[in-house]
Amino acid sequence: MRETVAPTRVLDGDRVTRVAWLPGSDRLLGECSCGSRAEGGDPIGMWEWLLAHPDHPAQVTEPDSGAPVAHVPPPHRVLRPEQAAGPRTPLR
Protein backbone atom coordinates (compact mmCIF):
# COMPACT_ATOMS: atom_id res chain seq x y z
CA MET A 1 0.00 0.00 0.00
CA ARG A 2 1.22 3.48 -0.77
CA GLU A 3 1.65 5.83 2.16
CA THR A 4 1.75 9.03 0.17
CA VAL A 5 -0.98 10.92 1.94
CA ALA A 6 -3.08 10.72 5.08
CA PRO A 7 -6.74 11.65 5.10
CA THR A 8 -7.50 15.02 6.63
CA ARG A 9 -8.32 14.95 10.31
CA VAL A 10 -10.94 17.51 11.16
CA LEU A 11 -13.54 15.45 13.01
CA ASP A 12 -12.36 14.17 16.38
CA GLY A 13 -15.03 11.69 17.52
CA ASP A 14 -14.33 8.17 18.70
CA ARG A 15 -15.89 6.57 15.63
CA VAL A 16 -14.60 8.51 12.62
CA THR A 17 -13.99 6.83 9.28
CA ARG A 18 -11.88 8.53 6.62
CA VAL A 19 -11.35 8.20 2.90
CA ALA A 20 -8.58 10.04 1.05
CA TRP A 21 -8.35 10.25 -2.71
CA LEU A 22 -4.69 9.62 -3.44
CA PRO A 23 -3.29 12.54 -5.44
CA GLY A 24 -2.32 11.82 -8.99
CA SER A 25 -4.27 8.58 -9.10
CA ASP A 26 -7.79 7.17 -9.21
CA ARG A 27 -7.21 5.31 -5.96
CA LEU A 28 -8.86 5.79 -2.57
CA LEU A 29 -7.29 5.14 0.81
CA GLY A 30 -9.75 4.22 3.56
CA GLU A 31 -9.06 4.33 7.27
CA CYS A 32 -11.37 2.89 9.89
CA SER A 33 -11.68 4.25 13.43
CA CYS A 34 -9.93 1.04 14.57
CA GLY A 35 -6.85 1.99 12.57
CA SER A 36 -7.30 -0.55 9.77
CA ARG A 37 -6.45 0.80 6.34
CA ALA A 38 -7.08 -0.36 2.80
CA GLU A 39 -6.81 0.94 -0.73
CA GLY A 40 -9.49 0.59 -3.36
CA GLY A 41 -10.71 1.81 -6.68
CA ASP A 42 -14.23 3.05 -6.04
CA PRO A 43 -16.27 4.49 -3.19
CA ILE A 44 -18.96 1.79 -3.13
CA GLY A 45 -16.41 -0.93 -2.42
CA MET A 46 -14.56 1.34 0.00
CA TRP A 47 -17.62 2.07 2.14
CA GLU A 48 -18.52 -1.62 2.19
CA TRP A 49 -15.04 -2.38 3.46
CA LEU A 50 -15.14 0.36 6.12
CA LEU A 51 -18.63 -0.52 7.34
CA ALA A 52 -17.65 -4.17 7.79
CA HIS A 53 -15.85 -3.11 10.99
CA PRO A 54 -14.62 -4.98 12.95
CA ASP A 55 -14.53 -7.74 10.33
CA HIS A 56 -12.79 -5.91 7.50
CA PRO A 57 -12.25 -8.15 4.46
CA ALA A 58 -8.66 -8.64 3.37
CA GLN A 59 -9.20 -6.40 0.36
CA VAL A 60 -11.58 -3.80 -0.97
CA THR A 61 -13.77 -5.11 -3.77
CA GLU A 62 -12.46 -3.52 -6.93
CA PRO A 63 -14.74 -2.02 -9.57
CA ASP A 64 -15.12 -3.83 -12.86
CA SER A 65 -13.84 -7.04 -11.28
CA GLY A 66 -15.50 -10.43 -10.99
CA ALA A 67 -18.95 -10.90 -12.44
CA PRO A 68 -19.87 -9.38 -15.78
CA VAL A 69 -21.79 -6.12 -15.72
CA ALA A 70 -25.26 -6.97 -14.50
CA HIS A 71 -27.10 -4.24 -16.28
CA VAL A 72 -26.27 -1.93 -19.13
CA PRO A 73 -28.62 1.00 -19.55
CA PRO A 74 -30.42 0.80 -22.87
CA PRO A 75 -29.31 3.24 -25.53
CA HIS A 76 -31.48 6.23 -26.12
CA ARG A 77 -33.58 5.56 -29.17
CA VAL A 78 -34.66 8.25 -31.58
CA LEU A 79 -37.91 6.87 -32.81
CA ARG A 80 -38.54 9.61 -35.37
CA PRO A 81 -35.22 10.83 -36.75
CA GLU A 82 -36.88 13.63 -38.64
CA GLN A 83 -37.78 15.18 -35.31
CA ALA A 84 -34.28 15.03 -33.88
CA ALA A 85 -32.35 18.26 -33.35
CA GLY A 86 -30.24 19.60 -36.19
CA PRO A 87 -30.78 20.73 -39.74
CA ARG A 88 -33.99 19.41 -41.16
CA THR A 89 -35.44 18.95 -44.54
CA PRO A 90 -39.02 20.13 -44.73
CA LEU A 91 -41.53 17.38 -44.17
CA ARG A 92 -43.80 16.73 -47.11
Binding site: V16, W21, S33
Partner: peptide, 13 residues
Amino acid sequence: TPITTEVDEDAQV
Protein backbone atom coordinates in the same frame (compact mmCIF):
# COMPACT_ATOMS: atom_id res chain seq x y z
CA THR B 1 -8.89 18.25 -7.41
CA PRO B 2 -9.22 15.13 -5.23
CA ILE B 3 -11.33 15.22 -2.08
CA THR B 4 -10.97 13.70 1.33
CA THR B 5 -13.99 12.51 3.26
CA GLU B 6 -14.58 11.98 6.96
CA VAL B 7 -17.65 10.57 8.68
CA ASP B 8 -18.34 10.81 12.40
CA GLU B 9 -20.74 7.95 13.02
CA ASP B 10 -21.75 9.15 16.50
CA ALA B 11 -22.19 12.84 15.71
CA GLN B 12 -23.67 11.98 12.31
CA VAL B 13 -21.55 14.48 10.41
